[in-house]
Write a protein that binds this DNA or RNA. Structure first.
Lengths: 311, 311
DNA sequence: TACAGTTACGGACCGCGTAAGCATA
DNA sequence: TATGCTTACGCGGTCCGTAACTGTA
C-alpha cells in the first residue's frame, strides 16, 4: 500500500468512479491509475469497487471503509506538507474561500485587498455558494476558510467564530413617503410592497416577525442579492430592506436610508475553518484581517470546542 | 513522501532516535533507513531531527509536528490493513491484552481459554502491569484491549466499559475466632492485623473506611497479589481480605470465607479498547467472552462517547 | 578504536507511459 | 462504433543491500 495508491483511490471516488477522469485530474495516464487500483485491491484481497461490465459502478461495503481511512491518511500527509510549506515559504501557497453572496460582495473585498498586498504569493480563490454548498465544499476539503451568513447548523462541518454582525436598513427613493420617517414601525412598512434582502434570515422567519405584530406583509421580492433589492427600491417597486453593509454611501446617494435594526433580528456572518489539521500561517492572518476578533487564540479555541458556542 | 518513509520515521522515534535500532526492528538495513530519512528531510526542506556529532539527539519543533501527523497517517493505513485482514481471514491475527494482576489471574483465564478454542489462529499476548503502565501501552498502541481495575481516570486514553464487579471476602483459617461470625463488622476486623488485597481500592481509601468508623486498623500487608494475602491468612499472620473472584473453592478449602461486601466499596474492573480505529471482529468476540454485557453495540457506544459514563 | 550516521555503487524491482486488447452500451 | 477498463511491453527511476567513508566519545 502506498500513499500514491490511496491518492488514486480517492481521486476515483471524487470523479464518480470514472478512472479516466481521475487520471486526468491526477496528471497521470488512465492505465497507471487502473493498474494501481488493481494492485491495491490484490494486496488487500478484496474489491474496493464493484465492476459491472464496462467501468466501475459503486464502492463495496469494505471499499467504503477503506476509502474513509484513505482520506484520513492523505489528510495527515497533507498536514505534513503544510508544515513544510509554512516553514519554507510562509508567503506562498493557496487560500480557497467559500462565501455566501452578501459576504463575498461586501465583507470579503477589503480583507482580500489587504491580504493580497501582504501575501502576493498566495493564490486566492473565492467560491460563492449557499451555506449548504459551502458546508459541502468544506466537507470535501475544497475550501480552506468559509465566510458565510446562515444557520450555524448548516456549517457544522466547520469550526466557526462570528466575524460580522449586520443589522437592517430600509432603502427608498428620497421622494418616498417613508423617507421622512425616522424609525418606521412594522405597521408602516407593512403598508408597502417589500423587497427583502434575505441571507440567513429565512422567508418564514420574516413572516413570523410580521405575523407576531398581526401584519400580513406583501413581499414583492426576496433575493440574496442586495443590488437587486436596491434596484427595485429605486424603481419604486417596493420598499427595500437590506443588510447595513450592503448600503454604499457613495453609489446609493439617490436612496434614503432608514435604520430598522429594532424590527428584525441581527444577522451574524461566521468565519468557518476546518476543525482538524494544520492551518497555514497566512490563513490565520487572513482571518485576522476579516475581523480583529479572529485572533489565533480565538480560532484555536473554536477549533477545539466540540460544537461552537451559542455566541 | 511515502508511507515507508513515515514508517521509518516513527520507528526511529520509538527507538529513541537510534537509526540502527530502528532498522533492526524494521527488518531493514541501517543505511536504508538513514537514506529515507534524509530524502524525506530534503523533500520537506527542514530537519526533523537535530544531529549532534554522532547520532540524532532529539526532534526539532517542526519534526514533532511531522511525527504526530505521520503516526496518524500510519494508523489509518493500519486500519485499512485490518479491514482487509478481517475480510480475508477473520480467524487469524494478533490480540494484545493489557491487564492488571488480579484481572490477569482470575478474570482473564476463562475468557482466554474459550477464545483460544474459537480462534486458534490468533496470537494472544497478555501484558501485565499497573493501570498507569496499561494506559501507557494503550497510548503507544502496544495493546489492543485492556482489562484493568483502577481509577477510570488512569485509563482515559481508552474507551472503557465495566466488565466485572467484585466485592470483598474475609479469609481466615477455619480455627480462627472470626470464622464463626456470619457478617463481621469493621470493629471486629479492626481487632486483628489485616492483610489486604489492593487493586483499585487505594490504601488511603481503605484507611478512610475504617477512619469513618473511628477505627485505626493494623494493616500488616497490602498486596496486589491475592495469593500472598491468602498465604498470610493461612499462616495466621493477619486476617485476609480479598476480592471475591480471588477465592478458589477447591484450592482454598482450608480457609473459611466470610462475605464483607457491606463494609468496603464494590470494585469495578474495566474493559478498555481504543477510541479510534478499526477493531478486528475477533476483538469484539473476545470482549464478549469477557462479559456478556460487552456487546458490539455497547462497545461502539462507549467508543463514541467523549468520556465514559459514571456507570 | 568503537560506534553511529552518511555516502558510493551495482543490481533488482517497481511504476510509468505507449500501445494493443477486451467488454459492454 | 464509442467508451472505458485491463493487459503487454519496454524504459527510467527508485530503493535496497553491501561496502567504504566520516566523525565523534
Amino acid at each position: 500500500m502506498t500513499l500514491q495508491q490511496l491518492r488514486f483511490l480517492t481521486a476515483i471516488v471524487e470523479s464518480d468512479f470514472n478512472i479516466t477522469a481521475a487520471a486526468a485530474k491526477l496528471n497521470a495516464t488512465q492505465p497507471a491509475v487502473s493498474r494501481q487500483l488493481l494492485l491495491l485491491e490484490r494486496e488487500l484481497g478484496f474489491q474496493i469497487f464493484s465492476r459491472n461490465g464496462r467501468g466501475l459502478s459503486r464502492m463495496t461495503d469494505a471499499g467504503e471503509k477503506v476509502i474513509e481511512h484513505a482520506r484520513r491518511a492523505l489528510h495527515e500527509a497533507q498536514n505534513i506538507k503544510k508544515v513544510s510549506a509554512d516553514l519554507n515559504d510562509p508567503r506562498r501557497g493557496s487560500l480557497r474561500i467559500g462565501s455566501t453572496q452578501t459576504e463575498a460582495r461586501y465583507i470579503l473585498p477589503p480583507a482580500i485587498r489587504r491580504f493580497r498586498d501582504l501575501f502576493p504569493g498566495v493564490r486566492l480563490t473565492v467560491h460563492q455558494g449557499t451555506p449548504e454548498q459551502i458546508a459541502e465544499m468544506a466537507r470535501a476539503g475544497r475550501i480552506d476558510v468559509a465566510v458565510a451568513a446562515g444557520s450555524r447548523d448548516l456549517l457544522d462541518t466547520l469550526a466557526i467564530h462570528p466575524c460580522h454582525r449586520s443589522t437592517w436598513r430600509v432603502v427608498v427613493p428620497s421622494s418616498h413617503p417613508l423617507a421622512k420617517t425616522a424609525t418606521p414601525s412594522l405597521a408602516q412598512l407593512g403598508a408597502y410592497p417589500l423587497a427583502f434582502h434575505l441571507s440567513s434570515l429565512t422567508e418564514s422567519a420574516l413572516h413570523g416577525v410580521f405575523g407576531e405584530a398581526g401584519i400580513e406583509p406583501h413581499i414583492i421580492l426576496t433575493s440574496r442579492d442586495a443590488e437587486t433589492i436596491k434596484e427595485y427600491a429605486r424603481l419604486n417597486l417596493g420598499v427595500g430592506i437590506i443588510a447595513d453593509i450592503a448600503f454604499d454611501a457613495d453609489g446609493d446617494r439617490d436612496l434614503a436610508i432608514l435604520d430598522v435594526s429594532h424590527l428584525f433580528p441581527e444577522e451574524t456572518a461566521w468565519a468557518g475553518f476546518p476543525r482538524k489539521g494544520v492551518l497555514r500561517q497566512y490563513m490565520y492572518d487572513f482571518l485576522r484581517l476579516l475581523a480583529p476578533d479572529l485572533t489565533r487564540e480565538n480560532i484555536e479555541s473554536a477549533r477545539s470546542r466540540e460544537r461552537s458556542p451559542a455566541f
